[in-house]
Structures are given as C-alpha cells and as structure tokens.
C-alpha cells in the first residue's frame, strides 16, 4: 500500500485522557459491567434465533418460534453491557474489510508455516505498542479481534483509556519489520473504521474521508504520509534486544501477583 501511516500520532488538539476516552466521539463509552441493557436488543435476539435455527438444521415455523423464545429468554436473563455504536456501515467498506482479511489470513498462514518449517531458525518476535487513532471501544475490540485472527500477530494487552493495543508479532528479524508490523495493525483499524464508522468518527481519527469504503486518494493520502514522517523514529521502535531485556527483568518479578489481582476487568470487552 502506498499509504503508510505510522504509530504514535500525537494530536495536540486531542489529548488522550480518561475524560477524552469516555466522553469521546462514540457517545460516551460507559464503564463495562455497570450499565447493563434494560431491554434485549433486536440484533442479539435475531442472531441467537438464527443460530438456533442453523443448529436445528431446518427452517420451520416451529423452529423459528422456539428460537425466538430461547433468544428472548437468554437476552432477558443474561444481559450484556451496552455497546455504544454511532457508526454508519458501508457495504464497500465491509467487502474491503473481509476480502482483505481473507487474503491476509492466507498470506500470513503461509508465512507462519514457512517459519515453522525452517529448522534451525528460531523466530524472534516482539511486543509492540500500537496506539489506535479512533477512541471507541467497539473499534478497538474489532481491530484486536481481527488482528488476532490473522496468524502471526496476537494482541497480548489492550488498554482502553489510551486506546492502545500491544501486539505480539512472530517474526521481527529483518529491517523495517517493526514498522511494518505497526502499519499492519493501523491499516486493519483503518479498514474497520471505513467499514463501520461514521464520517465524523473517521475525521476525528485523522483519516482521509471515506469513498467507496476506502480512503479517498485526493488529499488524504498526502496528509497521512506527511504526518507519518516525524514518527518513524517512534520511541522504542529501534530498540535493541539487550536494552529491552534489561528493563524487562525488573518487570518480570511481580507479574504473577498482578495476574492474581486483576481478574474481574477484561479491559478489551
């Protein structure tokens, strides 16, 4: 791709604070687990009913009715947190998103298979910090999901307040691999935004306006490219293994206690 947005785009007008994250463009991401749905959502009920009918295997009136009843009961008695959604899905964007996802999965599978079959070569990965440009929980989650679905990258940690994903990439040997891995995640996010977000959300994320489910080339591409230049030397991106290893030792000791304490809140809900 010609457009190579880089990570850590600092926007002076939009400091990422807690307040900015919670009262963001998406209409206020509520605390997870606090505001449960009052009434079942139509989408959830229809989806559950469709799953029911598919599980039974034939489309009869009795099946559909039973499915709707079970779905209503599930949605009523097991309510989930509200997911704020203020986007505008785009058909072209969705086609682009899933088409590219399928291609990515095939390419990445072949790549990982090649790494696994190269005996005598130990892959050296890394955990990268990628700050997403949108500030909505939903897009954060979807981006993380799709990145994890593609072999070769796993999201190890997601931080809501800052909109940051920490992605582990399998093989980072080779020049420019770190920047490339960051670009992959950011491009994934851009595709998610172009597929689902509203125009305002896309503009707030600093992306060029949408056209046929993708970025319009006219002026946006240049703007992103120019912004990306000073960030190429992003903090920690060119760090060598030894220095990160020494700082990692201090953190390794109390990871265990931390894992015990923080059980309730999955922050990437």
């Amino acid at each position: 791709m010609s457009r190579r947005p880089s990570n850590d785009v600092v926007r002076a007008d939009a400091p990422r604070t807690d307040a900015a994250a919670t009262s963001g463009v998406a209409g206020g991401a509520a605390q997870p687990g606090v505001t449960l749905r009052r009434r079942p959502s139509v989408t959830a009920v229809v989806w559950l009913a469709v799953v029911w009918v598919l599980l039974w295997g034939d489309l009869t009136i009795a099946n559909v009715l039973a499915g709707l009843m079970v779905a209503l009961a599930v949605a009523w008695f097991l309510p989930l947190p509200r997911v704020p959604f203020a986007g505008r899905p785009s058909g072209f964007g969705l086609v682009r998103l899933f088409g590219r996802l399928a291609g990515d999965i095939v390419v990445a599978s072949v790549h990982v298979a090649a790494v696994a079959l190269r005996f005598g070569h130990e892959p050296r990965g890394g955990v990268l910090r990628v700050r997403l440009r949108s500030r909505s929980d939903l897009y954060l989650t979807l981006t993380a999901d799709l990145c994890s679905l593609v072999p070769g990258s796993i999201i190890v940690e997601a931080h809501r307040a800052t909109g940051t994903l920490y992605v582990h990439t399998l093989d980072l040997s080779g020049p420019g691999a770190v920047e490339h891995a960051r670009t992959v995640v950011l491009d994934q996010e851009a595709r998610v935004l172009y597929a689902l977000a509203s125009d305002e959300e896309i503009a707030a994320a600093g992306l060029p306006p949408r056209r046929f489910g993708g970025p319009s080339r006219a002026r946006g591409g240049a703007a992103v490219a120019s912004r990306a230049v000073p960030d190429q030397g992003a903090p920690g991106s060119g760090r060598s293994g030894s220095s990160s290893g020494s700082s990692a030792v201090s953190g390794a000791g109390d990871r265990g206690t931390r894992s015990r304490r923080r059980d309730e809140g999955g922050d990437a809900r």
Binding site: G126, R129, I155, S244, G245, A248, R255
Partner: peptide, 23 residues
C-alpha cells in the same frame, strides 16, 4: 496470550522489542 504475558511465560531474551514491559 495475556495470561501468559502476565504470569511471566514470555521469554524476554527472545523478544526484539518489548514495549509493554517498558510501559
């Protein structure tokens, strides 16, 4: 993956970059 990272199952010597630990 997250449980593995948090319980120290990631070998630091194999990582080229580890920005999560830095942060």
């Amino acid at each position: 993956g997250r449980a593995g990272y948090r319980t120290g199952r990631v070998r630091d010597d194999l990582l080229v970059v580890d920005e999560l630990t830095d942060d």
